[in-house]
């Protein structure tokens, strides 16, 4: 609804400087676009405008900018990019906040820690591989009717719910000085998994059924690229759009790893 509601009075323009790249291995370039600002505009609505009017500021026709997005409500995590030097979701990035005046500039870049597919679209598959690595699931006995799940206190639910709102957007990884771009998928296993994955490991360790795989998760996180690669810069928790207590997860997994490490040392695995 309200399609026609915003048609009135386009007065203000914003300049978008966008770092573009035609594909893997291709050079990057900057292009600038002048975009009229609608009321309640966000970066997405401006990118939509550019898609429909792919002409640069100096009047040169170009291709529409490619970017990844889906829900536009900051719950799917797709539209993450680097805006004015900081990583965030572009859907919740309001123009009135970022560029309040006529002619203000907003810069858009793809996330730097993931291989670029094209323009602002990056390949975050490594993140999902990380979820496999730590077996981020509850190992249930199939989908048959086997009664309800374990009971849980409201306090415990609060802890798990906060962790479970992670939408795998990758902000924490983009801002992490220990998380580096790795194009070679065969090296993902020993490259740092990052805060999101560590936090998911904690999420499932906190669940009675999930905890059955706790040792497996800790074993996976004790190796190279695991919990010990964290450098405690704590940027992750600062840039997390969902305010997930990532550093608490890291410390909690640190504690579990301490105990697990001792156990393993003395038991001799």
């Amino acid at each position: 609804m309200g399609n026609g509601a915003n048609s009135g009075g386009r007065t203000r323009n914003v300049v978008f400087r966008i770092k573009r790249c035609d594909g893997p291995g291709k050079p990057s370039r900057w292009e600038a676009f002048r975009v009229p600002v609608e009321p309640n505009a966000n970066v997405i609505s401006c990118l939509n405008w550019i898609a429909a009017h792919p002409v640069t500021m100096d009047g040169r026709p170009t291709t529409p900018v490619v970017w990844d997005s889906n829900c536009l409500e900051e719950v799917c995590g797709a539209c993450t990019m680097v805006i004015n030097g900081r990583v965030r979701q572009s859907c919740s990035c309001l123009i009135d906040e970022y560029a309040p005046n006529d002619g203000d500039t907003i810069t858009l870049e793809p996330m730097s820690k993931f291989p670029v597919v094209r323009d602002l679209w990056v390949d975050r598959q490594r993140l999902f591989e990380g979820l496999k690595k730590v077996k981020a699931w509850a190992p249930i006995d199939g989908t048959y009717s086997l009664g309800d799940g374990p009971r849980e206190s409201p306090a415990q639910q609060h802890v798990r719910y906060a962790l479970s709102t992670c939408m795998s957007c990758g902000c924490c990884l983009e801002a992490c000085p220990q998380y580096l771009k790795e194009e070679d998928a065969s090296k993902w296993d020993t490259a740092f998994v990052g805060a999101a994955i560590i936090s998911q490991a904690r999420l499932f360790n906190e669940h009675p059924t999930g905890a059955i795989l706790k040792d497996d998760r800790l074993d996976a996180l004790l190796g190279v690229g695991g919990i010990n690669d964290c450098g405690n810069a704590q940027n992750c928790v600062r840039v997390c759009p969902k305010d997930i207590p990532l550093t608490e997860s890291i410390a909690a997994i640190g504690r579990a790893a301490t105990i697990h490490g001792f156990k393993r040392f003395f038991r001799g695995a």
Partner: peptide
């Protein structure tokens, strides 16, 4: 203290 898991909460 974080590495060893002594301090967990913020």
């Amino acid at each position: 203290a974080i590495t060893w898991g002594l301090t967990i909460s913020q």
